[in-house]
Design a protein around this nucleic acid. Structure first.
Lengths: 113, 113
DNA sequence: ATCCATACTGACAAATATGACAGTATGGTG
DNA sequence: CACCATACTGTCATATTTGTCAGTATGGAT
């Protein structure tokens, strides 16, 4: 049940993209960059996402070491997700990507391309 | 006939990813970073790619302003692709992505994750 | 007893990306 | 003339990703 197209390949660019690629991964990381959140809280904060997709993406991000999952015992269950130490190394990369993307949108928007 | 999943959205990260996302775009840019190449030359230099996909990706990259297409008149046709000035602004971003990916692969390979 | 919320799973359908394969026009070569 | 190479397009099949919907266990509120 993979959520990202490319599984790990020898190409480093593809390896990185496979970690952040996925319809909602960017948004999830963005939300969590303000601090840990519960599953349902995340879901409610991302309009349009379904619980199914949220959970699949979370599982992949945990599997890739980007997120931490902490489950408090009890019923009903209470699970918190947060960005791991390793996950934080991704943030500067996302910022570079974001900066280029912002410029790209601006150029596109004013038709100067 | 889009080749990339995400068309332009308001999110800068998605906007950037939509430009480089596609099964072969990274490889194409990598090859062209050594200088302009003809369509068939590119195809032969990328094992496994089909002519159809090569051309679709090339067209998207041209549409996004990353590549230039120069057609010399004559029969049979002769078309050269090269990275545009704008396209070169993408290269440092790819390098950052690549650096993270390389480290990721190393850590993964190690089992130290 | 019925319903709600929680964090999930499983089985499927829909959307999208990728690939296979045939076809196009034209000039050169055997 | 038959055939090749060129840079493409169109159509359809397959693969992958995303989304929909119903279920699961349990404790508390109504």
């Amino acid at each position: 049940m993979p959520v990202s197209k490319k599984e790990i390949s020898e190409c480093p660019v593809d390896a990185m993209l496979s970690v952040i690629d996925g319809r909602w991964k960017g948004t999830i990381l963005w939300r969590l960059s303000n601090g840990p959140m519960r599953t349902g809280e995340l879901r409610r904060s991302i309009p349009g996402i379904t619980e199914r997709m949220l959970i699949r993406h979370l599982q992949e991000l945990v599997r890739d070491g980007i997120l931490l999952r902490r489950q408090a015992s009890g019923v009903p269950p209470c699970v918190h997700y947060s960005i791991s130490k390793y996950g934080w190394t991704l943030v500067p990369v996302l910022e570079v990507i974001c900066a280029w993307g912002r410029r790209h949108l601006r150029l596109k928007g004013n038709g100067s391309m």
